[in-house]
Design a protein around this nucleic acid. Structure first.
Lengths: 249, 249
DNA sequence: TTGCATAAATTGTATATACCAGCATAGACT
DNA sequence: AGTCTATGCTGGTATATACAATTTATGCAA
């Protein structure tokens, strides 16, 4: 008798990681709390300690946990901005979490640049530009709003992309000659539109606003990402105690 | 008979990682090359495959290698900017590589801000500021120049730091309430001063210039880092084929 | 009370083994 | 010639085990 279909195609180590992550995001585990020891987790999952060790080690590398030999493993005190500074495809990020990425094209229009848009791209006011807005979903749940401003004459190929499947990061990674990247991170609260799109409460704090400007020889792109803070994490690697504790969100 | 002192306190997995990294930096392994299989490495180091597996897996997470099931493990095609965007202490970075960090205080003076400096900090021209310049060394080799501009009235405690042991990142991580970070990356070539400090050829290309501005409630800091490009790596995670290949450096 | 040795718990590292999954190729078959 | 299959190599995951290193708690002795 063969294995009855595929009951669980998710690796055990991944399940353990998700279990811990769920504990953190659900509030059962708070920053500073000790998580069960490797031996306990191994028993709980009927796994060997090595498997637990790998799962926990990976979470440590990812900045979610801190391990202290002889003491135990603890939920990282603070979230990290590090992932925000890593320029990766949101699709890849989601898939790495074992979830399914999809996206909805909210807007794709061409027209003259407003004053703000021209400022972002550092082009003359009224310049012919493209404005694309995409909503990214993780397992069907909205998770990030992406706004792209592109100067068509610099990037004709960009316009042929399927914006719902190819993220800006994907495209830029494959096609754009990097010369300079400017990166700004800010925190905002949700206005009516954003709260509706992301299915969160209005005026919810903690949203991360990331702005990136790519200045290449043949393309000028401005990417603006908005997503709930929970998706990305802070660790001590980036900011210390006061850094986040005193933040409004 | 006990172990004869400590012949090798460096973990085997770390040794394997260093072996591979050395192969890459020495040019024996170029991007795209296949590295020896896990079995071969295990034999070479008289280690078990699991140990090799861990070492190689970690290098993959760090973006230095790409693993393909059924094919082999390959040197990552391109370096990544990701570490540049991770805000970490240079001291920690160096120690993580198993090397010793030290630093030399090149300059520490107080005076009115020049036009350029005032612009960086967004303070009035002539504002009383501190200018600190530190040279960081890895195992005695100069590796990074750090320039810090600080507005004293916003950060009185900052001035009591020992600048040669506490890096700006360290301090900011522990004491500064984060509100906004601006991050710019650029590539420059080495002028006479820089080439002398970093012990590299004059006009050497590929130097990374990183500028960070921290805007907090009680501190405004501008940090400028210069280091040879080799220290940090690119991977496909950040930039695609053309991204680096076509760069002047 | 103080100091020190010891024990217990925990993570860190390493081994030996097993089986699964993906890829490429050689060889057999049509 | 084209197609299929078997095989071998590769990495992916998991187990069971062992010992080292670190921290904390405990208990005993001075």
């Amino acid at each position: 008798m063969k294995t009855p279909a595929k009951i669980s195609r998710i690796p055990l180590s991944r399940q353990i990681k998700n279990y811990i992550l769920d504990g953190i995001s659900s509030g059962n585990l708070s920053p500073g709390d000790r998580i069960p020891s490797e031996a306990e987790l191994a028993k709980h999952f009927s796994a060997s300690r090595m498997t637990v060790n790998r799962a926990v080690s990976e979470l440590t590398v990812e900045g979610r946990l801190n391990r202290v030999q002889g003491l135990g493993t603890f939920v990282a005190e603070f979230k990290t901005l590090a992932p925000l500074f890593e320029i990766r495809s949101i699709a890849q990020e989601i898939e790495d979490q074992g979830k399914e990425h999809s996206s909805i094209l909210l807007e794709a229009q061409r027209g003259p640049a407003t004053k703000q848009e021209a400022g972002r791209l550092e082009v003359p006011l009224g310049e012919d530009i493209f404005k694309i807005q995409v909503l990214h979903l993780s397992d069907g749940h909205p998770i990030q709003i992406e706004v792209r401003l592109v100067v068509p004459k610099f990037a004709p190929l960009f316009l042929e992309q399927d914006f719902t499947t190819v993220t800006a990061s994907d495209y830029l990674q494959k096609n754009v000659m990097f010369s300079e990247v400017e990166h700004k991170v800010d925190a905002i609260s949700a206005g009516p539109e954003i709260s509706k799109l992301l299915e969160i409460e209005e005026n919810a704090p903690c949203l991360r606003l990331i702005r990136r400007t790519w200045l290449g020889e043949d393309i000028i792109t401005y990417v603006q990402l908005i997503h709930p803070g929970e998706m990305f994490r802070f660790t001590g690697r980036f900011s210390g105690p006061q850094a986040v504790r005193d933040m409004p969100c």
